[in-house]
């Protein structure tokens, strides 16, 4: 639901800031409470300058995300690719991560290249290689990390996902576990649960192929942290809880 303009953080913060500044002026001019005046002035100025959102409206941003993922969905549907996707980190000939969606039963991952989208390398190696829909979101998180995520293992993966969850607010919470070759990712959605549900109605299969931009950011983060290709084995969604079971290839 769209908030009224004055209830949005960037406006309400300015109203609160102005109230504090007015109180500070009163305290400076009419009373001897210098520290109280300073405190009110500081809180007022801090609130006005810190709570600021120089970005597009949330519904516009979500519409942009939807457009991108629906294009992917239609492309994969038209190509009749129903197999589960494999998230491949940047290695060998790839300079960026990819999602490989095989046409048939996956025998092994073919050689992937940056400039190649349609892959045809023989039996079991035919499919589509696409840039993960969550790559731009993951890039934002990676920029905040003090070290490279590639090969940083579970700790690096958790730190990166922590930024996706707490810093960017993509989800309420997450868990990342690894046991042998199995990787489990659990995501509890918060404000974007409606977005997820709406998207799943229009493109159900996208969750097992590449994931929506939000899930894809987590999946790609895991693949890059462990630095191995991860095949989606199972996907479940109950209420706002998302479960991904992945397998190292």
């Amino acid at each position: 639901m769209r908030k009224r303009k004055f209830l949005r953080p960037e406006y309400s913060s300015k109203i609160i800031g102005i109230v504090f500044l007015t109180i500070s002026i009163y305290l400076f001019l009419r009373t001897d409470y210098l520290n109280a005046g300073l405190a009110a002035a500081f809180i007022g100025i801090f609130t006005i300058f810190i709570v600021h959102i120089p970005t597009v409206e949330e519904d516009v941003a979500l519409a942009g995300l939807k457009t991108g993922i629906l294009s992917y969905h239609h492309l994969l549907e038209d190509l009749n690719l129903s197999q589960y996707g494999v998230i491949v980190p940047s290695h060998k000939n790839l300079t960026e991560s990819r999602v490989f969606v095989p046409a048939g039963k996956l025998e092994s991952i073919p050689d992937l290249y940056d400039e190649m989208s349609i892959v045809s390398s023989g039996k079991g190696k035919v499919g589509v290689s696409i840039v993960p829909p969550g790559e731009p979101l993951l890039e934002e998180a990676k920029n905040k990390m003090e070290y490279e995520i590639e090969g940083s293992d579970i700790e690096g993966g958790r730190e990166c996902m922590g930024y996706l969850t707490q810093g960017m607010g993509l989800a309420k919470s997450f868990s990342l576990r690894k046991k042998g070759k199995e990787v489990k990712i659990r995501i509890t959605l918060g404000r974007y649960d409606d977005f997820c549900e709406e998207l799943r109605k229009k493109s159900t299969n996208i969750c097992t192929r590449s994931g929506c931009p939000i899930c894809s950011a987590y999946l790609t983060g895991a693949s890059e942290a462990f630095f191995v290709p991860l095949k989606i084995k199972n996907f479940e969604k109950e209420d706002n809880h998302i479960k991904y079971d992945l397998e190292e290839i």
Binding site: P9, I43, F46, I50, V51, I53
Partner: peptide
């Protein structure tokens, strides 16, 4: 928003310091 949390935290800290230090 993170920025809202920061503003609230800083306001609480400032008021706490004002209570502890007073007007001296």
């Amino acid at each position: 928003l993170i920025s809202q949390k920061l503003a609230i935290s800083m306001a609480i800290w400032t008021l706490l310091m004002l209570t502890l230090i007073g007007g001296e």
